[in-house]
């Protein structure tokens, strides 16, 4: 049987870590992109994968999902191999990886999150369309359901991708830079959705490029530079020493945001000065 695969029961997977990676190595040429990565994701809390460009952050996610072949290593999602856990996994790829001039509406794209549940050769039924619409609503995009995706702004496209992942109704979400190049409204919408997912007991693992916001948005961090430099709670893991190990000498003095220091009050901060500025 090719597809679909039934989801394992909650009881079957409750006690297992959402993601367990052992010795994951990915290499295309002589230098590995990812080298012997070990990581066990905590049961609760938002997780950021942080590291410099070319550190293998996206590769880590793709290898976890089986989208790029691993040279060695194992990946388990809730105690089982990824191939048997597809129904538990949601995915937000980088926005630039698709052609947004594709003839599809926002709702069409979000409904793709339901395809695995629908199965082979069957059309997207009304119930699935409604579910997709509800997911668009959760990211504040309900009014854009019928808009061709190429007419949306970058931030709106990012929200469509997030809504598509929500439509998957997964338990472990892999997101590749969901905050990259988005406007403030999208950033707020995305972080709200991530927090809702966390409260609902879902696991969210995000590649995150902005060191300034790691401590604000995430509870755990995985510092990656080809190998795993450090992993754990943001408060104890993210410090000058680990960042130096991760980024080498590439960080300026202002780029080291430690947990609790220089913390911005909340993600809504971006708008406050602008609104005051109108006066």
């Amino acid at each position: 049987m090719l597809f679909p695969h039934s989801a394992p029961s909650i009881a079957e997977t409750a006690a297992t870590p959402p993601l367990e990676v052992r010795g994951l190595t990915v290499a295309y040429n002589r230098k590995p992109v990812l080298w012997s990565a070990d990581y066990t994701a905590p049961a609760r809390g938002l997780i950021a994968i942080v590291g410099p460009n070319g550190a293998g952050k996206s590769t880590f996610i793709k290898a976890c999902l089986g989208l790029v072949p691993a040279v060695s290593g194992t990946v388990k999602v809730h105690g089982g191999p990824v191939a048997k856990r597809r129904a538990l996994i949601g995915y937000v790829p980088q926005r630039e990886t698709v052609d947004w001039d594709f003839p599809a509406s926002a709702l069409d794209v979000v409904a793709m999150g339901r395809y695995a549940m629908i199965g082979w050769c069957r059309p997207v039924g009304r119930a699935h369309k409604e579910a997709a619409r509800a997911c668009l609503d959760r990211v504040g995009m309900a009014d854009f359901a019928d808009r061709q995706i190429g007419q949306l702004s970058g931030g709106q496209q990012q929200r469509v991708f997030l809504a598509r992942a929500l439509a998957q109704e997964a338990r472990v979400y892999f997101m590749d830079e969901p905050f990259a190049g988005v406007d403030a409204a999208t950033e707020r919408a995305v972080i709200q959705v991530l927090r809702d997912l966390d409260h609902a007991g879902r696991t969210v693992i995000c590649v995150h490029h902005d060191l300034q916001t790691v401590a604000d948005y995430f509870d755990h961090v995985l510092l990656l530079n080809t190998r795993v430099v450090a992993a754990g709670p943001v408060a104890t893991t993210l410090n000058a020493e680990t960042l130096r190990q991760t980024y080498g000498g590439r960080l300026g003095p202002g780029d080291v945001p430690m947990a609790g220091r220089d913390r911005a009050p909340d993600p809504g901060r971006d708008l406050a000065p602008l609104e005051r500025g109108v006066a």
């Binding site: 597809f3 995915y91 598509r164």
Partner: peptide, 8 residues
């Protein structure tokens, strides 16, 4: 990629 991630 998304299709593969979904198991297709």
């Amino acid at each position: 990629d998304f299709a593969a991630g979904q198991g297709w």
